[in-house]
Amino acid sequence: MNLVQEKIVELESMKNYPKQLFFSGNLELLKKTKISIVGSRKPSKYSRLLTHKIASTLSKNGVCVVSGGAMGIDAIAHKSAGEENTISVLPCGINIKYPSINKNLLEGIEKSGLLLSQFEKDFRATPWSFVVRNEVVVALGDVLVVIEAELKSGSMRSIEIALKMGKEIFVIPHRVGESEGTNELLKLGKAKAIYDVDEFVSRFASSEVLEKKVDDFIEFCQTNPTYDEALKIFPQRVFEAELNGDINIQNGRVLPS
């Protein structure tokens, strides 16, 4: 746990630049294009799937994902981006892995990615420290993506911060009666909807166009292997591809979508 010595340009958009900012991990991630992702601690299955797809696609295209290390959307965003390509901003001292349910995730990010905090060692999270944390999360990203939020949720505080900073806000479209906070933003024209993940990511990708690289896994799926065969050769990719909708499982066989 060390103090960040150099000024972070993105944080100059905050009401008050942090008097101190502690870190543990890879500061090089601060030099990358960054997108902040926040949302409900109890997301719907739809929100979980979209969070995974957006965060993983951003990461694959060289974009670092920033979030707050909380349960729900935050944790999914960090995991989907990969511990080596995500920044978690904490509402407590870096030595306290809060919430404890995310302890392993936060330790992995500390080892491979980057943890940031304005708080001294041993400081425990308080209601006001979450607001302080949220401001840093929002400031670091080029834009703010809000996956799911009710009208009186903590995510709405992040939205207020983003609006004051003049940040663009993106949300995913929800059905009427769901995620009323983000639906209200769309209604008022204060946010833009993400209808196509690849199109959204292409705005921030390290290359001008999303490259359609040859994918050994997808090529393998063209042969319609059994599910067991796919799991044996590509154990990690099968689950990810199912979540992303890249493959379908029919009668025990894997079919590309």
Rank of each mutant, 00 (worst) to 15 (best):
E208I: 03
K53M: 02
T33I: 15
E208A: 03
S24N: 11
K32S: 13
E184V: 00
K232E: 12
K42H: 13
L116D: 02
K152H: 13
N224L: 06
M1T: 08
F170I: 06
S207W: 00
S47I: 09
A205Y: 06
N102C: 04
L49R: 15
I109C: 12
V136H: 09
I169C: 11
I172W: 11
G252F: 08
A125D: 14
L231F: 08
G39P: 09
E6D: 14
G245D: 14
K187E: 15
Q118D: 00
S257G: 04
D228K: 12
R253D: 03
S13W: 00
K34L: 15
W128C: 08
L105V: 06
V38C: 13
V63T: 00
L231Q: 14
I218N: 01
S88C: 15
E242S: 13
E83H: 11
N248V: 10
D216Q: 07
I147Y: 12
T126C: 10
P91M: 04
E84A: 14
D216Y: 07
K7T: 13
M156G: 03
V137K: 06
V254N: 05
I8V: 15
A193E: 15
N183I: 00
I94K: 05
P18H: 07
S206D: 10
I172C: 07
E150H: 14
G25C: 07
L115T: 07
F239N: 13
G62W: 02
L50P: 05
A75G: 03
V136C: 08
Q222D: 06
L29N: 04
M1Q: 08
P256C: 01
N224E: 06
A77Q: 01
P256Y: 00
K34Y: 13
K31C: 05
K213T: 14
R157M: 15
S179D: 03
I161P: 03
S56A: 06
A193T: 10
V171W: 00
I147M: 14
R237G: 04
P18K: 07
K103P: 02
L105I: 10
P91G: 14
M14G: 04
A230K: 03
G62F: 03
I96A: 00
K232F: 09
L30C: 10
L231M: 15
K232T: 09
V214L: 15
F22W: 11
T223S: 14
I73T: 13
H174Y: 04
V143L: 05
L163T: 07
R203G: 10
S88D: 03
K187L: 14
F204G: 10
V254Q: 05
D142R: 15
M1A: 07
L11P: 02
V138A: 13
K111G: 00
K167V: 01
A55C: 05
G62H: 02
E12W: 06
Y46P: 02
F170D: 04
S179L: 04
L11V: 04
G108P: 00
E229K: 08
G108E: 04
K32L: 05
Y17F: 08
P127I: 09
T223Q: 13
